[in-house]
Every structure is written in structure tokens, then in C-alpha cells.
């Protein structure tokens, strides 16, 4: 069976790439700390030595549109292009090109449908920054085949938080059952409290620091019951009008099960809190010396 070697759940901040490319004398004061934290986080994936990446993200009205909107979609293509012109314009990111892993995509689709998720699929998908950002942060050499999975956190009516957790659990079952010798890592990106296009956007920190403080504890502790008893589709409006992206973190908690994270770090930035979590479902699959740090949230 395949080996699930690492689960990474992280925010995706489209300005990281550009910020990380700036010379020191032009970089903002927070840049050095941000780059240092991202490089430490990258090591949590590198040491797991994955062969294939399952990438969970959410299209931001790039390819998926309101005339034809899937709730959950799996890419099944031999290749994927990455990043859209209006992202390049706004964020200064380059276009990317990915190999796909069609065998795992096909298995994910067949098994997902048979296990209760009528997954949509795409044979030609240009992935957006929800999937390319973690490549820039944790796998900049972009050398591994991917299976992209998109969720709808953007265009109501949305699936409820319970459904995201359940999909995560199902993805875990599917990877664990995949008849392959591949080492699989899952990387999913979402948001903590976030406001876009509203009065609370682009403040000195995320729009709801209290929510963010609770959210990183739920994730770090694998507290699925705690998060499900506190978070609903309605409640997610209060921390910020784009906070439904937190449900992608909940999906990743579903994949990790009720496990405490092995790495948990965060960073307060203008506009949003960054957060970086990694689980190793079977630590015996990860060789080499232990992590020098488990992140600020696990000290």
C-alpha cells in the first residue's frame, strides 16, 4: 500500500514569492522572519521524501465559474499549468508547469465516488495560487507530480464544515488503501481570519486575532470536535468575509485524524496570520535527525 509520509496544512499568502525575491535593502521589515519561518517549514516536507503530492486548494474564480460550479473537484490530467494572468499582474508570481499523477487521480476519483463523494473532475486545469503558493514555499524545485483537489470555499451555497472534515477523512482512507509503493504527501492551503473587499481588509493584522488564536490551537491539537462545535457556515462570516477558507484547514484536520501536529508555527503579518502545520502519520517512515524546531506553537 502507499505510504502517507506527511500532511501539511498551511496558509497561502500570494505575496510571499515576491517578498522573498526582494534584495535585503528593499525588503519590508517582516520579510527576513517570514523567509526564515518558511524555510524551516519547508524542511518538514523535505525530510518526508515524498514521491507524489496531493494538493488541496480552492480556485479563486479563475477556471471555475458560477455557470458551472463544482463543490469538490479532482484534477485528472497528465500535466497542469499554474497561475493566471491576473495573479501574475497582482502578485508578481511566475507561471508554473506541473506533472500530474493520473493513476492516483483516477484512483482518488473512483474511490471518492464509491465512498460517498460525487467528485467533479477536470482533464485540463490551470491551477491557481492556492496550489502554486505552497510549491513556492515548501517545494520550490517543483519536481514532483501532483494531484490537485479543489474545494468550493468561495461561491455560496458552500458545503458545510462537517463535509470538509469528512472529505479529509475519506482522502486519508483512499491514500492508505492505494495499491502502490509511492510515498504520498498531502499539502492543503486555506486561511485563518481574512477579509477581502470589505471594511476590515488589509489591517495591521488579521481581522479577528481572537479567532486566529483559537484556530491555531484547534489545528495544532487535532481538535476536530472542538472546531466542529465552534465553527459553522454562519459563524465563519464574523471573523472576516473570506474566512470560509478556514474549511480547507478543517479538511486537512480530517486527513490528519485526531492527531496533534508534529510541527506548528505561525507568524502575524499585516492583513492576515500565517500558519504552518505538519503531521507525520507514521514517524518511522521519516528518516534522518529530528526537526531542530517544532515551531513556535509547540515549544
Amino acid at each position: 500500500m502507499a505510504k502517507l509520509v506527511a500532511i501539511l496544512a498551511t496558509t497561502h499568502h500570494p505575496f510571499f514569492y515576491k517578498t522573498s525575491q526582494l534584495p535585503a535593502d528593499e525588503a519590508p521589515p517582516f520579510a527576513a522572519d517570514w523567509v526564515r519561518k518558511v524555510e524551516a517549514y519547508r524542511e518538514t516536507l523535505t525530510r518526508a521524501q515524498p514521491d507524489v503530492l496531493v494538493m488541496v486548494g480552492s480556485d479563486h474564480f479563475h477556471q471555475l465559474w458560477l455557470d458551472n460550479m463544482p463543490q469538490f473537484l479532482v484534477g485528472k490530467a497528465p500535466y497542469y499549468d499554474g497561475n493566471w494572468e491576473n495573479e501574475i499582474r497582482e502578485f508578481g508570481m511566475p507561471k508554473l508547469f506541473f506533472k500530474g499523477h493520473e493513476e492516483l487521480s483516477a484512483y482518488m476519483l473512483r474511490e471518492g465516488i464509491d465512498r460517498g463523494f460525487d467528485l467533479a473532475f477536470s482533464h485540463e486545469l490551470r491551477v491557481d495560487h492556492s496550489i502554486t503558493c505552497p510549491i513556492f514555499t515548501v517545494r520550490p524545485q517543483n519536481d514532483l507530480p501532483i494531484v490537485p483537489i479543489y474545494t468550493n470555499i468561495f461561491a455560496p451555497p458552500l458545503p458545510r464544515p462537517e463535509r470538509f472534515v469528512q472529505l479529509g477523512k475519506t482522502i486519508r482512507e483512499i491514500i492508505d488503501a492505494w495499491p502502490s509503493e509511492m510515498r504520498v504527501a498531502v499539502i492543503g492551503t486555506g486561511h485563518l481570519s481574512l477579509e477581502l473587499g470589505g471594511p476590515r481588509q488589509f489591517g495591521p493584522h488579521g481581522p479577528d486575532p481572537e479567532f486566529d488564536a483559537k484556530a491555531v490551537e484547534w489545528i495544532r491539537d487535532g481538535d476536530i470536535d472542538g472546531v466542529l462545535s465552534n465553527v459553522t457556515l454562519d459563524s465563519l462570516h464574523a471573523p472576516g468575509n473570506a474566512t470560509h477558507g478556514f474549511m480547507d484547514f478543517m479538511l486537512m484536520m480530517g486527513i490528519a485524524g485526531y492527531a496533534r501536529a508534529d510541527y506548528a508555527d505561525n507568524l502575524n503579518l499585516f492583513h492576515t496570520m500565517e500558519a504552518y502545520f505538519t503531521w507525520y502519520p507514521d514517524p518511522s517512515l521519516v528518516s534522518g535527525p529530528p526537526l531542530t524546531s517544532k515551531g513556535a506553537l509547540l515549544r
Binding site: 479563486h60 474564480f61 497582482e90 477581502l196 473587499g197 468575509n241
Partner: peptide
């Protein structure tokens, strides 16, 4: 109107 679309 969707605030992400307007903002972008």
C-alpha cells in the same frame, strides 16, 4: 456583488 471580484 462578490467582494473578491470587485476588489481584484
Amino acid at each position: 456583488a462578490h467582494p473578491f471580484l470587485t476588489l481584484t
